[in-house]
Design a protein around this nucleic acid. Structure first.
Lengths: 367, 367
DNA sequence: ACCACCCGTGAATCCAGTA
DNA sequence: TTACTGGATTCACGGGTGG
């Protein structure tokens, strides 16, 4: 994991190194058609206006680094098309690329990929199990990021380890949405002050799935925005070669130290477990959205008291309003109430527990 | 649900109708700034080898016509930018748009939205609980579609029913990934032959969430690619007005029949949890004016610090003076503070939150 | 050792009404 | 248009502390 400055026009691929410099120049100095996979986490071009505070008045540590600032969409597009062109030149004919982004930049990246001749294979949604909430209640919780997986060109024979991913997914086909936690805890690298070493470090679990699914042992994986080297760490662990490009010295330093601590897995151990999937919660409102209960319909409790369903899944009784649990608790004058087992609805003159509808939704979710 | 052909230059908005014709021409004939929400499910027809159609539905002659990939994207972009321009003209200043698509087209749509001046609020992933599997095992199961939600411009005051969506999500704020089944079963409309009436009919549950979250009863919702009218059906059910545009007669026919069978919900079922923001403002000074608090009376914060009420409704503590919010913020050394939930007063030796007095005034205002 | 509780924090385009 | 100010707003974890 030496950190090296690349001489112009190198004809030999520097494997398992972190290269210093602007990614476009460095990529153009590497030999054409020599890389199996590129994983890129480019700047997102977030356009943050002012400071943001949590409801408890603590300040959100935003991504305000200079490398994420662009003057306009046009400037961002120019940058994107330039690095994608250099990246495409580097790829072997059957190579592929992954690019990750958010709604701020991913549409521009996707358009540029298509215009450059890449052939999109899937867009993959990383659904974060623990995203940061929306503190002001003005939008939906931004709970996912998008990755685009594309081959160098249409008809190319890209690598796809279908069986391995199926295995990772408990025996069923891997889907285009991946539920994984964000990078936190001990995995999150800190600097000497104890602050996060990089504002946007990606979880290794994400790269694990990418590399298991779209590379083979011994392949060369390049990351032009190396940061703290998550791509390199997982590549090395999985017996792939990496090439990292990073222009910020502080990130290179952290990455080099990190990579020095990675010990590749034995060939026999290249299969790992996956994080368990949380049992999805079913919201009562889904019964309304999906037409299993009609807004305005009446639910009945064990005492025969009635409450009416509203479009947002809340209930209204003669004296109370709120969730199925809240209204149930109020009617029972109890501290809490499981609304799912408390309420019934009428069908064909018979009373049916609403929990049966929840079970129906749960069973559909497993399909 | 009459189906009508729009006369050029109509100055009156035809509500709750299905309009016949090309959506760009029809939209341009409707009055500017008259629509609250646009939901659009534009054609995806990219990368569909074999039967090629241009976005304007003209057939491609594979022999004479050089229909390479770049031309295809270029034509799609031209089409997209044209209908988005017409759509944006139609929107009220505080209106918003939703566009749904897949990786074939959504990146181009997103780029065009941004370039047209729309301001992206969220990208929302519709995670299909029952997608079609990938039969050949060559890619990931394409298990989601992407919706982009955007306001007409940056800084616009778009509609967002935060509390209603939170209620729909079992009391936690709604995320940007929605798990919903595809449209199937009885909901899936069939033609006279028993085949599906439309290839990409969207589930009503999806529109339910969109319309509850980003419109109010009475709003005007336009769908320029109406198809079998899912947008209209849910809008009518929820007490919103719809305008559908569809150029295929067979779809219009199915949609008209469908809409005729929809019976709007009662107003009481349409109500949702009212936002605190929407409640009338109460000035703290009113508590003094009305004698609920006496001038000179002492308020106490959570730390036990005291402040005295003055005749004009301002507070004085040992070191600070100003509004209940300002003194609270100063004592907490915080950027802001909600004085209503921060201060308490004493009655009969017990501490009571001043917010209770505000609620008392508010309830009197309803009488 | 274990559990309960508190605290910190994460790629964020995050306010509205009035003077 | 700008300035000011009232006041509304958070979910899932991990780690550390204290009992």
């Amino acid at each position: 994991m030496a950190v090296s400055t690349l001489a112009q026009g190198a004809s030999v691929l520097p494997l398992d190194e972190i290269l210093d410099g602007d990614c476009i120049k460095v990529m153009n100095a590497l030999p054409e058609g020599s890389v199996d996979l590129i994983f890129a986490d480019p700047p997102y071009n977030l356009q943050l206006r002012g400071e943001l505070h949590r409801p408890d008045n603590s300040r959100v540590d935003a991504v305000d680094d200079a490398w994420d600032q662009f003057d306009s969409f046009k400037a961002y597009d120019t940058f994107t098309r330039a690095w994608l062109k250099a990246a495409r030149r580097l790829l072997k004919p059957n190579g592929a690329i992954w690019v990750i982004g958010s709604y701020h930049n991913i549409f521009r990246v996707g358009t540029a990929l298509q215009d450059a001749g890449f052939w999109i294979l899937n867009d993959v949604v990383w659904r974060k199990s623990n995203p940061m909430p929306n503190f002001r209640g003005k939008r939906l919780t931004n709970a996912h990021e998008t990755m685009i997986w594309a081959s160098k060109s249409e008809g190319a024979k890209y690598t796809f380890n279908y069986e391995a991913l199926k295995e990772l997914n408990e025996g069923v086909q891997m889907r285009s949405d991946w539920v994984l936690p964000i990078c936190s805890g001990h995995e999150r690298l800190k600097d000497d002050n104890g602050d996060k070493a990089h504002p946007t470090q990606k979880p290794e679990s994400l790269l694990h799935r990418v590399l298991v699914g779209s590379t083979n042992p011994g392949d060369v994986v390049l990351d032009p925005f190396f940061g703290t080297g998550t791509t390199g760490a997982v590549a090395k662990l999985l017996g792939r070669h990496y090439i990292g490009i990073e222009r910020e010295e502080s990130y290179r330093k952290v990455a080099a130290k990190r990579l020095g601590q990675v010990r590749p897995l034995e060939a026999s151990a290249l299969e790992t477990t996956i994080s368990k999937r949380a049992q999805p919660r079913v919201a009562f409102g889904q019964l309304v959205e999906r037409g299993l209960l009609r807004p305005g319909e009446v639910l009945v409790n064990p005492r025969g008291q009635a409450a009416k369903v509203r479009v947002d899944g809340s209930l209204v009784s003669a004296e109370h309003r709120g969730s199925i649990h809240q209204v149930g608790a109020a009617l029972e004058n109890a501290p809490s109430c499981n609304g799912w087992t408390y309420w019934q609805f009428k069908r064909d003159g018979r009373l049916i527990p609403i929990d049966l509808l929840r079970q129906q939704i749960r069973s559909e979710m497993h399909d």
